[in-house]
Design a protein around this nucleic acid. Structure first.
Lengths: 229, 229
DNA sequence: GCATTTATTAACGCATACGTAAATTCATGC
DNA sequence: GCATGAATTTACGTATGCGTTAATAAATGC
């Protein structure tokens, strides 16, 4: 679920890194609400460390656009407005379509595409069971697998950053949306296009897919007056 | 020349921010060579501050992919391999083409496009005078103005990060390349397409333009055996 | 009673100090 | 003479302390 590569190797994570992960999780879980302010010292106490690792974590999170360090006001958890979300979706669309084209052009064999196939399967099962949580998880997995198959590590890094924000918004909007039936069909078409080495189709289908997702999200945010998630 | 917005307002920059800018400039100037290691304490002494602001700056630069903090080995200035450069160009291409399409669709009036026009003029003058330095500066200005006209602040932020790396490489390769004559013609076509509201043409022309730039850069890096700049 | 100035508080930026663990050097045994 | 282990060095991670300054409260003038 983390956007960083979860290497199973047991590395002795530093306090700064733990603070980074903890704060990130708290933001996604809503424990640190969008728009809220938090003093470094309060966060330090909550995490049981001194201000130093909290500051370091905050600086990293600031670089990723999740919060803002405002002198004397504490760290501000940045709300994501509908306009922000539109921006994010547009960037994600470009990066994912780049990945889709690249993946199609790489001539992957079937086993390489297993992560995609598995994610599609899981999504179909989830939809059949009306299990939106699991659908969302598998959907996320599909998109990330797609980007990884694209083979551009920088695109993947930026994708992770942006996708984190979408995930955050989706925890709010997930249960407001209709069942993602068309979405699953899109995924399968993208998968087939990549397998067939048809970069143009992969791009076109995925682009339309993402456009729909963007419109859906913006509609939900508008309908429910969610001006900052 | 800085990638951050240079607001002329005199804000009392913090030591951490100054360290960030100073280290960034030192990296671009080659004072901190690609692949070299530097102790936090050494950098602190060079900059005349304590380790704290240096560490904070280093963490930010790490987030931007310019260096890496390696415990006990100092901060390592990340070299950019030809493969890395290819990745960077691909991401830049997508973001700039997104911006070109968006700009074309916004129905800008002539004055809005002045930054582009001015950059094109300057480039033509520079080429006529065989002044590669000024050409590169104006070229950079054109691309950045294009991204700003696209109106996606997140795309602009990522653009800045990636473009910084290209700038770094270009300081090395600038004088190895032929005069950018075709490049100027491309810019003008992109400009005209945006002015005409023709998003498709703007995208197509700019995409080809960027593809050429990428190939040019990769050729130069290969020809001159620059495996890490 | 309101505006303006002064005093107070408090949060941060940054320097500093220190424990820890990696890296290096040195010493010892084989 | 080399390998292995002990001692030492060193750089980092992080806690702590302090000066500065923004924000808030109090006080004064009008």
């Amino acid at each position: 679920m983390s956007s960083k590569a979860d290497t199973p190797s047991t590395k002795p994570l530093s306090n700064s890194q733990r603070a980074f992960l903890a704060l990130r999780d708290m933001i996604f879980a809503g424990d640190l609400a969008p728009g809220s302010d938090h003093l470094e010292s309060e966060l330090a106490e909550q995490l049981g460390v001194s201000r130093t690792p909290v500051r370091e974590a905050a600086l990293m999170l600031e670089s990723q656009g999740l919060l803002e360090l405002r002198p004397r006001k504490g760290v501000r958890i940045l709300p994501v407005s509908p306009d922000d979300m539109a921006e994010i979706y547009d960037v994600l669309t470009e990066l994912e379509c780049l990945a889709a084209r690249n993946a199609a052009n790489k001539g992957y064999s079937e086993p390489d595409l297993d992560p995609l196939a598995k994610a599609i399967e899981d999504m179909e099962v989830a939809v059949a069971q009306n299990d939106l949580e699991n659908w969302a998880e598998a959907d996320d997995r599909f998109h990330r697998a797609l980007v990884l198959l694209g083979g551009n590590s920088r695109a993947a890094t930026v994708f992770d950053m942006m996708n984190d924000q979408v995930r955050r918004a989706r925890t709010v909007t997930l249960f407001m949306r209709p069942l993602p039936v068309q979405s699953n069909e899109d995924h399968r078409q993208v998968f087939e296009a990549i397998k067939a080495g048809d970069a143009g189709t992969a791009d076109a289908v995925h682009r339309a897919h993402r456009q729909n997702a963007k419109n859906m999200m913006l509609e939900l945010l508008k309908k429910h007056r969610l001006r900052g998630v």
